[in-house]
C-alpha cells in the first residue's frame, strides 16, 4: 500500500522559507484556495499557511545549536484527525495515504485541530473551513506537468533539496533509503499517530589531525635554510670512526 510522504533533512535546512511561500502561492490559486490573510497590510497580519518553519535554539552559549524546523501535515498512517471529524470531511486516501479535507463537507468545528498533536490543521479564518497540506495532490498526478516536476511545490522549490518526496512503503524509494540510512525519525512517536513524514537528524562532520601531519619531510620552510643545522665544529661519526 502506497504511503506518500515528505522526508525533511534538518542537516541541510537553512530556514529560507522557500517551502512556506511556494506552498502558499501554489495553493491559494488552487482547488484548496484561496488561502486567506487577515490584516494583510495592517497590524498583526495572520494568514493560512500549510507549511511553517520554526527556528529555535538549543543549548547555552557558546554551545548553541540553531535549528530550522519546517512542519506541515505529516499524513499520519493512523491519523487522529480523521475519526474525530463529525461530517466525514477529514479523510485519508486509500490509494496513496494522503490525508485531505473535503471542503464541501467541512463545517469548521476545529475538532480535528484539537486531535492533531502536531498543530498541522489550520482554520481558514475567512472561509471558516479547515485547511492543510495536500501533498500537492493536484500536482503529483497532473500529466500536463513534466514528470520530473510532478512533485509538491515545496519540494521543487527547496534550494537545499532538504525536502524529499516519495513512498515510504516502497523500500527502494529515495525517502525509504534516506530514513533507513540516515536515522530518519518520527515526530512525537508516543502519540501513536504513525506519522508518514519523517525527519533526518543533524550530523556533525569533524576533521582529525594527527600530530605527525604537522611534521613533514617536504616542509617548505626547509628550503629557506630555516631548520637549524649543527655547527661546523660539532663532532660527527665522520671523525670518530673509520668503518
Amino acid at each position: 500500500m502506497t504511503q506518500l510522504a515528505l522526508v525533511i533533512d534538518l542537516n541541510v535546512c537553512v530556514g529560507c522559507h522557500a517551502c512556506v511561500t511556494s506552498c502558499k502561492e501554489w495553493n491559494t490559486s488552487g482547488t484548496a484556495g484561496p488561502m486567506s490573510d487577515m490584516n494583510p497590510y495592517g497590524e498583526d497580519p495572520t494568514g493560512t499557511f500549510f507549511n511553517r518553519v520554526q527556528t529555535f535554539e538549543v543549548g547555552i552559549f557558546p554551545n548553541t545549536e540553531t535549528v530550522h524546523f519546517p512542519k506541515s501535515c505529516l499524513h499520519c498512517e493512523d491519523p487522529p484527525c480523521v475519526p474525530v471529524c463529525p461530517t466525514g470531511a477529514s479523510y485519508k486516501r486509500e490509494s496513496d495515504g494522503i490525508v485531505l479535507v473535503d471542503s464541501e463537507k467541512c463545517i469548521g468545528c476545529n475538532y480535528c485541530s484539537w486531535a492533531c498533536p502536531y498543530g498541522a490543521r489550520e482554520l481558514d479564518e475567512n472561509q471558516k473551513i479547515m485547511k492543510k497540506c495536500t501533498l500537492c495532490v493536484d500536482r503529483i498526478y497532473d500529466e500536463s506537468i513534466p514528470e520530473k516536476e510532478r512533485k509538491p511545490a515545496c519540494v521543487n522549490a527547496c534550494p537545499t533539496n532538504a525536502r524529499l518526496f516519495g513512498d515510504i512503503n516502497d523500500p527502494n524509494s529515495e525517502v525509504s533509503l534516506a530514513i533507513r540510512e540516515q536515522g530518519g525519525y518520527k515526530l512525537m512517536p508516543e502519540w501513536g499517530t504513525q506519522p508518514a513524514n519523517h525527519y533526518l537528524p543533524r550530523r556533525k562532520t569533524r576533521i582529525t589531525i594527527h600530530e605527525d601531519e604537522l611534521i613533514r619531510a617536504d616542509n617548505p620552510l626547509k628550503k629557506e635554510r630555516k631548520l637549524p643545522m649543527p655547527d661546523a665544529d660539532d663532532p660527527t661519526l665522520d671523525e670518530t670512526t673509520s668503518w
Binding site: 529560507c16 522557500a18 511561500t21 511556494s22 522549490a157 534550494p159
Partner: peptide, 19 residues
C-alpha cells in the same frame, strides 16, 4: 517557480521569488 533549465538556480526558488 524556478526554471529547471536555468543554469543559475536549476529550478529552485526562494521565499522572495515565490512571493
Amino acid at each position: 517557480e524556478g526554471n529547471p533549465d536555468h543554469p543559475i538556480n536549476k529550478g529552485v526558488i526562494c521565499a522572495k521569488g515565490s512571493s
